[in-house]
Amino acid sequence: MNYFLNQSIELANQRNYLDQLFGIYPMSPDNIREIDNVKWNIFEQAFSNNHQEKIIESLLDFDLFPIKDSYIAYLRRDKSAIKRNPSTIARLCGRLKEMGLNKIYENLSQPKETNRQIGPLFKRWVNSEVLGIKPVDLETFKTSSNNAILNASDVSMQKFANECLGYTRLKGLDFVARFNGKIIIGEAKFLSDFGGHQNAQFEDAMSLLNTHLNSKVIKIAILDGVCYIQGKNKMFEMLKNKYQNYNILSALLLRDFLYQV
């Protein structure tokens, strides 16, 4: 088994793994969303005047809709449907009137789900210089041969990899670095549970490892979470069997990996 994969499994099962991981992925479920006062005032006026179409239109301008309803996504994508479906709009407004302004405001300001916070956290951790190097912009990265970590968006990393590394996937990257003359590219995933979307995230990271690139490029999957729980679950079985010799590691071991390539 790959040394760093084995070390990641041991770390997750024998030490204070979650306590350490919180330094990389500090979930903040209690941070409420800020409500735009201008948008709220527009909604509040429509609500007090019982202007039903305007009530729905104004609420669709917020990140969250204050009630769960299967038709909301349709209305978000086709706002012209508001005028064509008065019964649906009346039904929704009836539920909103029953809730009242205070509850509507409370629901609009609900915190983001933790899985939606994960994406930027890994890059923020990398950019904090915890890996021993201050990440640099693309131009500096391309014109230097020193050890470096790229500070760029997922899309910019993808474009660089397309142009310079033979990368052909239509997907951004989470990590690009150069150590000891070798380029390392990777995807970072925090897998919070088994099944569904999380399995798809796992497979997404594995697809990078199976991508053909220039010979000097090292591909890594920076995985954390339930995938390291020993047992008969699909993720661990795939790590132990199909992907046992690939560069798969916890973000907690990334620094050690980089300096030994």
Rank of each mutant, 00 (worst) to 15 (best):
L96F: 10
A81G: 09
N37H: 03
S87F: 10
A46N: 12
L21I: 02
P111H: 10
S48P: 00
I32K: 14
D61V: 04
S58F: 06
G94W: 03
Y17D: 04
Q52W: 08
Y74G: 00
G119M: 05
I72T: 02
P29F: 11
G119Y: 04
E57T: 11
S28H: 06
N107C: 11
R124S: 10
D36L: 05
D63Q: 12
V38W: 09
P111M: 10
Q45Y: 11
Y105D: 06
S58C: 11
G94S: 07
P111C: 06
R77K: 09
E106P: 01
K54Y: 14
T88Y: 13
P29I: 07
N37G: 01
A46I: 03
A81V: 02
L21S: 07
N49T: 12
A46Y: 06
P86H: 02
A81L: 10
Y74R: 04
D69T: 02
A73V: 02
K112T: 11
I104A: 10
Q20A: 07
T88L: 15
R33S: 10
I42M: 07
N85D: 04
L18F: 07
K39L: 14
N107G: 07
N37W: 01
L18Y: 14
D36P: 03
P66D: 14
I67F: 05
G100E: 09
Q117H: 02
L92Q: 08
